[in-house]
C-alpha cells in the first residue's frame, strides 16, 4: 500500500497556496477495519492528505532543502464524513513562514460543501538534534510528485511553470 493520501495536485502556487483532490474508494484498505458496517475514510487520513499537500507547499518554498514534518494539528473540525465515492477537494494556504517552521490553514470540500477545516503547524528538523539523513530515499519524492500531477500545475510566485529542483 502506498502512503499517499492525496491523489492529485490541481493547483500549486509557490509560497502561497495549493489545492488537490482525494477520491475515497471502497477498496482502500484503510476503510476496511475502521468502521466496517458504515465505511468512511478515517478522519486522521484527511489530516494526513492535507498535510502532504501542505508539506510539499512549505518544502517547495525552501527549494526542498528543509526537512519538513507535521509537528502539530492546531485545529481539526469535521462537518461531514468522507464516504466511498466522495471526492474531497483540499485547499491549503500558507499563513506564516518562520525560520524553524510554518503554519498553514486548510479546508476540505465535498460537492461544494465544507467538509473539514484544519490548521497545521510544520517544523523543520534541526540537523544538530536529528542528524542530516533525508526523509526520502533518492528520487522517491520526485516520483511521488510526478504521480500526483504536480509538475502539470505547479507555478512560481510569478505564475511561471516550476522547474524540477536539483534537490529532488
Amino acid at each position: 500500500m502506498r502512503w499517499l493520501w492525496l491523489d492529485r495536485f490541481t493547483e500549486f502556487q509557490s509560497g502561497s497556496h495549493a489545492t488537490g483532490v482525494k477520491n475515497v474508494a471502497l477498496d482502500e484498505e484503510a476503510l476496511d477495519g475502521y468502521c466496517p458496517a458504515y465505511t468512511f475514510l478515517p478522519p486522521t487520513l484527511i489530516i494526513e492528505g492535507i498535510a502532504q499537500l501542505g508539506g510539499v507547499l512549505v518544502s517547495e518554498h525552501f527549494d526542498f532543502e528543509k526537512r519538513v514534518v507535521l509537528a502539530k494539528v492546531g485545529k481539526a473540525v469535521y462537518h461531514a464524513l468522507g464516504r466511498p465515492g466522495d471526492q474531497l477537494r483540499y485547499a491549503v494556504r500558507i499563513d506564516s513562514l518562520q525560520e524553524n517552521g510554518a503554519f498553514c490553514s486548510a479546508t476540505s470540500h465535498c460537492d461544494g460543501a465544507l467538509q473539514a477545516e484544519v490548521d497545521l503547524m510544520f517544523a523543520f528538523l534541526d540537523p544538530s538534534r536529528f542528524g542530516e539523513e533525508s526523509l526520502f530515499n533518492p528520487g522517491d519524492l520526485l516520483g511521488m510528485l510526478r504521480l500526483m500531477n504536480f509538475f502539470e500545475v505547479a507555478v512560481d510566485a510569478e505564475g511561471r511553470p516550476l522547474a524540477i529542483s536539483e534537490n529532488l
Binding site: S96, Q98, G101, M121, A123
Partner: peptide, 21 residues
C-alpha cells in the same frame, strides 16, 4: 520546545507584532 514555535506564531497574530527568535 516545539510549542514555542506555536506560541510565537499565535502572539504575532494576536498582537500584529514580529518576534525574532
Amino acid at each position: 520546545s516545539i510549542d514555542f514555535l506555536d506560541i510565537v506564531f499565535k502572539l504575532e497574530k494576536a498582537f500584529d507584532i514580529q518576534i525574532p527568535r
